[in-house]
Design a protein around this nucleic acid. Structure first.
Length: 580
RNA sequence: CGGGAUGUGGCUCAGUCUGGUAGAGCGCUGCGUUCGGGACGCAGAGACCGGAGGUUCAAAUCCUCUCAUCCCGACCA
């Protein structure tokens, strides 16, 4: 491809509406343009990258036995009413009406459509398992779109849905997808980690997120320094504490202590001159409309998702001021775990077992209690893992040290069970002629987000550093011809040679000054740059630069093809990739 | 949806407080000089200052409404 005839509108300055590097660079490199909030044009260069990601994903899905199809973006409301999500999904679902007033939505995901399709055609266990996928535009009316391609409203996603006759089969399908994802992300050339993720209200351990490791990631992941364990912070288990159960151990009688104006843990500790780990923090939540109290140590943070899962609820909200007052009879900041209404269950973090003699709120204004014993003074519904893991905690699986890193979620594998098949009556007859619900799984990959995350993970001050497998073009050939016809001719020759090798090359034959060509090549981030100038031609060489490492070498013009092939291999190796 | 901010040539911004009829840099067009890391000179084109209404002799500037975009919170590939 000749740059003199290609559409790459680059920009020198950062766009005003961009916050993160990937967004700035994608716009500056002429790969995307915003149409409206969260909705982008993919320009030729950007689309090339997207298509390369899609192709790799497609190949790995096919290899895993999944079958590509395509589902409509506009979906009838009926299906969503049937699955119960028409009401549940909320405003993220963009709803519209046709000329007859019938209701539709733009598909944010396709469980309903695929389940509807399959229930009509799959009637026997003999037809199972089946895994269908598509690569398609999705629309989610995000509350707050941001960060360019990282969180658009319209985006490209690969979504796959597996159907099995039983749990065992579903589990197998799940792990096949898990492996396919690992293969795909490896091929794309990103540093990533699969981590355990929250599986929502459905429960179970069957959900993993695939995280691209990048400092600018929105998610925090806890990973073990010695074993494979990795988990999204909201999911990470905290091991049960070691030590004797002190719940019912001896403890002096509970007594009130005045703590005027001390609402926060910090204030109370300072006032009473005690460390925060001597205090029990009582948090009041409303789970699906019902109040509950949750206890964690004063220096810990409650994980509301764990609370939700223990309650088997859907929606967890911190109780508002009025509710707190109603339940505890005290203003916010003085709630305690005893003497609460009987219909308010109290859940305690399991760490609270191994100590006693606590300080806690007294359910009276400006008052706390000391010498609180959870066993003697409270009715604890259950001790359970409720808090957020901390860097000082140990791996819940092997007990080694853990570390926190940032990541960008680019894939999610999820076991659905019969959540949809039951509601939508997607059934089949098993070996015994019995009607059963299809057991489903769903598996997503954010195709367009991957391009953004690749840049988040790989960039420098000059621009993008694309991994070779998904770079819009693998090689940039920069001709410094100018008036030197010999250089221009030789560059043409090289262009033909490289193209013949079956490698995509962006041939910069424009009448631009060298500086412009260099700067743009760096900005766009072609993994390999070849520069042919007058001096080089005289010496019979072309310069080669590895965009990622910055390493420069000279390739002989005589016997170029071989030298180029060897260098290309080096470049791929510098990405930890094998060239086959 | 709450809280904050911004809308001025294609892009990035100044001008708004203190009304007097629109500026810079980049980009674009032409000519010339340059030509190995986003060149320089000269000459140009391009804006009813987001929109509507109001105040005023006079509004980019003040007032009201409205729309859009961005940032902070709840959602997620």
């Amino acid at each position: 491809m000749r740059l003199s005839r290609y559409y790459i509108p680059t920009i020198k300055e950062d766009p005003a509406d961009a916050e993160v590097v990937s967004h700035k660079l994608l716009v500056r490199a002429g790969m995307i343009r915003k149409l409206t909030s969260g909705i982008y044009n993919y320009l030729p260069l950007g689309l090339r990258s997207i298509n390369k990601v899609a192709r790799i994903v497609r190949e790995e899905m096919d290899r895993a036995g999944a079958m590509e199809m395509s589902m409509p973006m506009v979906q009838p409301a009926d299906l969503w009413v049937e699955s119960g999500r028409w009401d549940y999904y909320g405003k993220e679902l963009l709803r519209l009406k046709d000329r007859n007033g019938r209701e539709y939505c733009l598909g944010p995901t396709h469980e309903e459509v695929i389940t509807d399709l399959v229930r009509g055609d799959i009637k026997s266990y003999k037809q199972l398992p089946v895994n269908l996928y598509q690569i398609q535009n999705k629309f989610r009316d995000e509350i707050r779109p941001r960060f360019g391609l990282m969180r658009g409203r319209e985006f490209i996603m690969k979504d796959a849905y597996s159907f099995d006759k039983d749990e065992e089969g579903a589990e197998k399908s799940y792990w096949e997808m898990f492996e396919a994802y690992k293969a795909a992300f490896s091929r794309i050339g990103l540093r990533f980690k699969p981590v355990q993720a929250d599986s929502g209200a459905i429960g179970g351990d069957f959900s993993h997120e695939f995280m691209v490791l990048a400092e600018t990631g929105e998610d925090t992941i806890a990973s073990c320094k010695s074993c494979e364990f990795g988990a999204n912070l909201e999911k990470a288990k905290v091991s049960a504490p070691v030590g004797e159960d002190m719940t019912n151990a001896d403890c002096p009688a509970m007594e009130d202590v005045a703590t005027p104006g001390s609402h926060t843990v910090e204030e109370v500790c300072r006032f009473l001159d005690i460390p925060a780990d001597k205090l029990v923090k009582t948090l009041l939540f409303v789970v699906d409309g019902k109040p509950v109290a949750a206890l964690v140590r004063g220096d810990r943070e409650l994980n509301d998702i764990k609370l939700r899962n223990i309650m088997g609820g859907n929606e967890v909200e911190l109780a508002d001021e009025a509710t707190v007052k109603e339940i505890t009879g005290a203003p916010v900041g003085f709630a305690g775990p005893f003497g609460l209404p009987e219909d308010v269950p109290v859940y305690a973090d399991h760490e609270l077992c191994v100590a006693t003699d606590w300080v806690a709120g007294a359910n009276k204004g400006d008052t706390h209690v000391r010498h609180l014993s959870l066993g003697r003074d409270c009715t604890i519904e259950k001790f359970a893992d409720l808090r957020v893991i901390e860097p000082t905690d140990f791996c819940p699986e092997c007990g080694s040290e853990i570390e926190f890193t940032k990541g960008i979620e680019v894939g999610h594998v999820f076991k659905l069970g019969d959540k949809y098949s039951e509601k939508m009556e997607a059934t089949f007859l098993d070996e015994n002629g019995k009607t059963k619900n299809l057991v489903m799984g769903c598996y997503g990959i954010g195709i367009s987000r991957i391009v953004a995350s690749a840049i988040e993970q790989n960039h420098d001050d000059n621009g993008c550093c694309f991994p070779p497998p998904i770079a819009p073009f693998e090689v940039a050939l920069i001709s410094l011809g100018g008036k030197d016809q010999d250089v221009a001719d030789k560059a043409e020759e090289l262009y033909t040679d490289i193209t013949r090798l079956g490698i995509e090359v962006a041939y910069d034959d424009r009448k631009e000054r060298p500086g412009v060509k260099f700067a743009e090549a760096d900005l766009i981030g072609y993994p390999m740059q070849l520069v042919l100038g007058g001096k080089g031609l005289k010496n019979g060489i072309v310069e080669a630069k590895n965009r990622k490492t910055g390493e420069k070498i000279e390739l002989p013009l005589d016997g170029f093809a071989e030298a180029f092939a060897a260098w290309r291999k080096d470049v791929w190796n510098s990405w930890g990739l094998e060239l086959n």
